[in-house]
């Protein structure tokens, strides 16, 4: 009797979210795979019948180059984010408590700030008439005719800018819990400061490093706004292609096909991490988390 009531409670508490996410997340995602095999109709909708032409069309070297560029940009952005996030998270975690709270807040504010605005801010300062360009030209560091905007460098710079807070937060959460006596122990056993950091601190926050990689790498694979606003024709990513198929020539099946490529690119690192972690998974909130 009691067991039955418990079952009932579980059912009613689970049903709303389960139903909602099945309807608006699972089914639509499955639909992407199905609709990629439908022809496009001339009015921007989905035609009847089945075709593999769309998938075959993805072998176009243009798309391969873009997929490769997407991976490369995401990889570099993730690497730069980690290089900046680890020392920052470490410094914030080790700061005296009052200053730590202030630093933490300064790191969190960009996290809450509008994504579009943060990208736009860079567009205006990298602009030929913008402050950075003028300063660099003044210092003689760049040629007046050079272009800071609309290239791959700008895309990576702004991707790092927008995702860095998401990398810092999970690493900070782990660094804050880290037992720093372990660093003392390593020093005591003869390790130099950097050896202690590499052999004891980094392994100690490994889980958070994985989280940080995922929260930067995966969203940057799906990047669309950043290359759209500060990138040029030579720095388009998969996301731009998907959006173009949707908004420019309204070819939903092709957009679906490109999305499948993106899904595969996202799944690869995820499955890799899951395989590494084996059966450790259990119900717990992710460290730090982050909005994509």
């Amino acid at each position: 009797m009691k067991n039955l009531r418990r079952r009932g409670q579980e059912f009613f508490l689970t049903l709303p979210s389960f139903f909602w996410l099945s309807l608006f997340f699972l089914i639509p995602t499955a639909l992407v795979f199905i609709l990629a095999f439908r022809p496009a109709d001339p009015f921007g909708g989905i035609g009847r019948g089945w075709t593999t032409a769309t998938i075959e069309g993805l072998a176009d070297p243009q798309y391969l180059a873009i997929a490769w560029r997407t991976l490369w940009v995401s990889f570099l952005s993730t690497a730069f984010c980690l290089l900046l996030a680890v020392p920052t998270a470490y410094a914030v975690a080790r700061a005296p408590e009052r200053r730590r709270n202030l630093l933490l807040m300064l790191v969190i504010v960009p996290f809450w700030t509008s994504f579009l605005i943060r990208v736009f801010a860079w567009k205006s300062i990298l602009h030929p008439e913008g402050l950075i360009k003028k300063t660099l030209v003044f210092c003689g560091l760049v040629d007046p005719s050079s272009q800071l905007l609309y290239n791959l460098g700008a895309v990576i710079l702004v991707t790092v800018y927008t995702f860095l807070p998401f990398a810092i937060l999970p690493i900070y959460a782990a660094a804050e819990k880290f037992d720093y006596r372990l660093l003392e122990a390593a020093r005591d056993l003869g390790a130099r400061p950097f050896q202690a950091f590499r052999k004891v601190f980094l392994p100690g926050i490994r889980q958070a490093l994985v989280t940080a990689v995922l929260v930067v790498f995966i969203p940057s694979l799906g990047s669309y706004i950043v290359p759209d606003i500060v990138g040029g024709p030579g720095s388009e990513m998969l996301g731009n292609k998907i959006a173009q198929r949707v908004f420019v020539d309204r070819n939903l099946p092709l957009a679906g096909g490109l999305s499948i490529v993106l899904i595969l690119a996202v799944l690869a690192p995820l499955l890799g991490v899951l395989a590494l972690q084996g059966k450790k998974a259990r119900i717990q909130p992710p460290e730090g988390g982050g909005k994509p």
Binding site: T29, L31, G222, V246, I263, V266, P292
Partner: peptide, 10 residues
């Protein structure tokens, strides 16, 4: 962990 653009298109 799903990029926004995928959720948008689906």
């Amino acid at each position: 962990v799903v990029p926004e653009i995928l959720m948008g298109i689906s």
